[in-house]
Amino acid sequence: MRFNEWRCRPLAEVYPIVWLDAIHYKVKESGRYVSKAIYTILGLDLEGQKELLGLYISENEGANYWLSVLTDLHNRGVKDILIACVDGLTGFPEAIASIYPQTETQLCVIHQIRNSMKYVASKHQKAFMADLKPVYRAATKLEAEVALDELEAKWGTQYPIVITSWRKKWDNLSLYFQYPESIRKAIYTTNAVEAVHRQFRKLTKSKGAFPNENSLLKLLYAGILNATEKWTMPVNNWSLALSQFAIHFEGRLDSKLDI
């Protein structure tokens, strides 16, 4: 299948999990090199198999462009996504909700941690991380909220911007606490799609920039073909996870699972 056929192919109606992230490259445009965002969408189908749903390109990463990407997925047949895993880009959950209003959006906890540490003085980072771990590694959401209160009591005066960010995004950061361990591991970060980006970087590391968008997309597509050859097995404990999804998202998988 050629790249243009692949990018327009019909998709399944339902994906239990979809990860969305972007990677940036330099591309020549009107005689100068500009930064372009490659939007990567990785899905997990009802068989527990990974599938790269699409690659898109734009001048910069933004919620408005993600909205057009999600619209394209919908037009290609994706009627429902149970959980979307994304980074902390402002407006991203709202963009998803406008196309898929029933989808639960989990913000990547690792992205949130990285962004938080940018605002913490280097001399405090080790201690701050030690106090932050009980928040995202808690067994329950209630335990996590108690740990967040303790984090604020200790560090809130020095780093109010960090605490405010966690509080503001908490609903989407804490979504994974309602699931068992097998599902939590899959959704609390965007590591699955970042692994695809690592494969892209291996392909492109010898190229500082690209002469046009098409040459970049075709090379990445070649990388996709190589990566998907290794995706032969479903994720661990998928049957158990799927049964839990069927209970949690009552009615939304019935027609697909013959329930």
Rank of each mutant, 00 (worst) to 15 (best):
T140E: 15
L203Q: 13
Q158S: 08
A97C: 08
T90C: 04
V196K: 01
H111C: 07
L175M: 03
I99M: 08
V78M: 09
R167P: 12
R167N: 07
K168I: 01
L70K: 07
L175F: 06
S182M: 04
I163D: 13
W170I: 00
P93T: 09
V162K: 06
K207A: 10
L89T: 01
T103E: 10
M117F: 15
V162S: 05
A95H: 10
Y159M: 07
L175S: 00
T71C: 12
R167S: 03
A97W: 14
E94F: 11
F92I: 04
N172Q: 05
V196D: 12
Q199E: 15
A95W: 11
F92P: 07
N191E: 12
Y179D: 12
R114T: 08
K202I: 02
V78L: 09
A121V: 02
V109A: 02
H74K: 14
L82G: 11
I99Q: 10
T105C: 09
E194A: 03
K79N: 13
H197A: 02
L73A: 03
I96S: 05
E213D: 15
L107C: 08
L89H: 12
L142V: 12
D149W: 04
T103A: 10
W155E: 08
L175A: 01
L148F: 14
Y176V: 01
A84F: 14
V146S: 05
S174Q: 09
L73I: 02
I183R: 00
K141G: 03
A153V: 01
D87V: 00
Y176P: 06
I110N: 03
K169I: 00
Y119N: 10
Q106T: 01
A192S: 10
F128D: 09
L203W: 12
L203Y: 11
S165P: 00
Y176D: 08
Q178M: 04
A95K: 05
I99E: 11
A195I: 01
S182R: 01
E145D: 14
R198K: 06
K185Y: 04
Y179N: 03
P101L: 01
K169Y: 11
W170P: 00
A121T: 09
D149G: 04
H74I: 00
S165Y: 13
I183N: 04
G91P: 07
T157R: 11
T71E: 15
K205H: 14
Q102C: 02
S116I: 04
H74V: 00
V120Y: 14
A192F: 09
N75I: 01
C85E: 12
H111M: 08
K207M: 14
K168M: 02
I163A: 10
Y100N: 02
Y100E: 04
K123C: 13
L142G: 09
N212A: 04
D72Q: 10
K202L: 07
N115D: 15
I183H: 06
T90N: 10
L151I: 05
Y159R: 06
K169D: 14
